[in-house]
Design a protein around this nucleic acid. Structure first.
Lengths: 149, 149
DNA sequence: TGACTCATGTCAGCATTCTGACATAGGCTC
DNA sequence: GAGCCTATGTCAGAATGCTGACATGAGTCA
């Protein structure tokens, strides 16, 4: 079915391509993270904490592009399993700064290698200039889309 | 918290930017589709059927980047509500070619306008050349990511 | 013809994320 | 200080998508 090579503007829609690319990336990441028993959000949370120790739940949620409710569920599980630690009392306000435990750091190392291999593969056919252009284009799109209608 | 402007390589990771951009696009689409009682996948399905009448459930799933199981749930709802029609018997094999009903077409028109406005906004700050470059970059990434490890 | 492989439609159960809601902490203005 | 707004953490329920599984239809090959 649908072997008609009809020229459809979906193929030239940047929005559609963006979704296609991010889906391909997500699937590739899930594929390498699954053997480690880790989801993409799970990995994102650990990676964020490694790079910015002390992030709060809400900040992690924004960094991983999920709601703070979703991140809270994940954080509680990570804390229960000993990958992350949070103080019982907030040093200021209500925000609880989270940090990786040694176990969390070890877990992240393997995941980082796996994810890095995916990113390397993704960039395989692109020159440095093309990567810079793509980076700039994506940033422009994000800027334009933010800030409501 | 985290006012440290630490230079982190997340900001220069094409994978991270890709996720950020696609999230921003998805949120913007959800925002304009919600008043119409439509989800992004819902809209994608109708748009695909408008451009390629007769697509099967599995083909729609691939086009909308979800599993055929998920698309099946959606298609059954769309069929029940009179937006889409499928024959009770498969003309060949098991694939049931789906088509928009007049009601489905009317529903799609409003959604298309809304989504188009989002895409226009997204491309606002980019020249045609930049858009072409971005398109090519995204296609390259998809190519590289497909085909397993 | 029969065995094998592949794609499809579909059902069931599970995982993940979301929306809605509430209480609390801090900053701001009057 | 009182009132207001915003941000945060958290709980509960709903929506959405996924994996696993099964049966069916078509093509391939011995």
């Amino acid at each position: 079915m649908s072997q008609d090579g009809a020229a459809i503007h979906l193929e030239t829609s940047l929005g559609y391509l963006l979704k296609e690319a991010s889906t391909a990336l997500r699937l590739a990441m899930e594929e390498v993270l699954r053997p480690l028993g880790m989801t993409v959000t799970h990995y994102s949370c650990l990676e964020l904490l490694a790079q910015r120790p002390g992030l709060s739940n809400s900040e992690l949620a924004r960094g991983a592009f999920v709601t703070r409710q979703s991140m809270n569920v994940l954080l509680q599980a990570l804390e229960r399993d000993g990958y992350v630690s949070r103080p019982s009392q907030a040093p200021v306000g209500k925000a609880l700064p989270a940090r990786l435990t040694p176990r969390g750091r070890r877990s992240l190392e393997k995941a980082s290698r796996a994810v890095r291999s995916v990113e390397v593969r993704m960039l395989a056919g692109m020159t440095d200039a093309e990567q810079s252009d793509a980076l700039r284009s994506l940033k422009s799109m994000v800027r334009s889309l933010r800030g409501g209608v």
